[in-house]
Amino acid sequence: MKIAIFTDTYYPDVNGVARTLKRLADYLEEHDIACRIFAPKTPSEYVADNLHQFTSLSVFLYPECRLAFPNLSQVKSELERFSPDLIHVATPFNIGLCGSYFAKKMNIPLVGSYHTDFDKYLKYYNLQFLSKYVWKYMAWFNKPFQKIYVPSIETMNQLQQRGFTNLELWGRGVDCGLFHPDYNKLSARMRYNAGNKYLFTYAGRLAPEKDLNTLMNVAATLPDYIKEQVQWIIVGDGPIREELEGIAPDNMIFTGYLKGKRLAEVYSISDVFVFPSATETFGNVVLEALAIGTPVVCANSGGVKHLVKNGVTGFLCEPGNPESFKEALIKLIHNPSLLQSMGREGRSFALTQKWDNILESLVWSYKGVTETGEKIKYA
């Protein structure tokens, strides 16, 4: 089987979509399944034999995202040479549209994956009036797909209510060999001047849709006796980093983007992972924190609410309510034994979320699509 993946973001971009697709591409290669990725060209010098990149520009107000300008003749020539059995479109922008176009033109089976709740982002940019247009576009864009892979039950339910069909769950795994609890915590604590303080950590994009206003409110209004015992570590970058640094309390450190072992080390020294975002379709960073054995305090919304078992591996809080988050954090500070038991339970859960099993199921689904011979529904 040969798979062509069309995406508007790919490794080394730092986001869940890019990381997931890189994991998929690596799995396909390891299992001798030929794969070609069509993606935007980025300032990075990363290259790969199976990666075809196209000129792109960064998006206004969202510089980490890029708008690509695929060369259609090049795409057609490469697809004719490669002769894929299936096209997988991962994003609803220029390159995704290109993939759908050639699937129709060349009569190639077509699937898609839904990664981002753009509709939920709108209120954070004061663009709620665009909601109906976003959903109309997404319905049109996803209609031709013979399968639409979604990352969580929550996302599947949401799309079903919107009339989407052919939905199938494609969850996410975690590398428990990288994200484990046995790092040298002393040296990592020294790196962040943590001393003996409790460490509260956030990891993710620093952008409005992550509801970091709630996190900053929590940090600023915790009781003074708690503040004195706490060090915050904020991992990530994005359009509002400078704004956040300007209002951050003295006990908050910004690290920028971290990945691999450095990111895992931060999780490993953290007492609690705090994640206020209510817009996640899955929440890869939440699963990574659980794999390390770090309890999670997060919004009871989106895909993350299916990862955290309330009262067992962390606490689910009312989205956008700082008091709900503060109550959970104070409870954990006062209950060291609860912190420890939640860490153990989180690690046990993460050990069941194996990438190989998840990606093997996806490949079997691919095979099912290629063997049905269904026509692409462009009507």
Rank of each mutant, 00 (worst) to 15 (best):
M1P: 12
A4T: 10
A4G: 15
I5R: 05
F6E: 00
T9H: 05
T9S: 14
R19L: 13
A25L: 04
E30A: 11
F38I: 09
T42R: 10
S44L: 10
D49L: 15
H52V: 13
T55Q: 10
T55S: 09
A68T: 08
N71K: 14
N71Q: 13
L72R: 14
K76M: 05
E78M: 11
F82Q: 09
S83P: 05
P84M: 07
H88D: 08
N94D: 04
A103E: 00
K105Q: 08
I108N: 04
P109G: 06
L110K: 07
L122T: 05
L130F: 11
Y137P: 03
P144D: 05
Q146E: 11
K147Y: 08
V150D: 01
T155Q: 05
M156A: 12
N157Q: 13
Q158P: 02
R162C: 03
G163H: 03
L169T: 13
G173P: 07
G173K: 13
V174C: 07
G177D: 12
L178Q: 10
L186G: 14
R189V: 06
R191M: 13
Y192E: 06
A203P: 02
P208N: 05
N217H: 13
A220E: 02
Y225P: 00
Y225M: 04
Q229V: 07
V230G: 01
W232V: 00
I233L: 08
I233C: 02
V235Y: 03
L244G: 01
A248L: 01
P249Q: 06
P249M: 02
I253V: 10
R262N: 12
L263A: 03
E265D: 05
V266H: 01
I269M: 08
D271F: 03
V272T: 04
V272D: 01
V286A: 12
G293L: 00
P295G: 02
G302P: 10
V304E: 01
V312S: 04
F315S: 02
P322E: 02
K326P: 00
A328C: 04
I330L: 09
P336A: 09
S337K: 14
S337T: 09
L339H: 03
G343A: 08
R344P: 06
F349E: 02
L351K: 09
L351I: 12
T352G: 11
I358C: 13
L362D: 01
V363E: 04
Y366H: 15
G368R: 09
G373A: 07
E374Q: 15
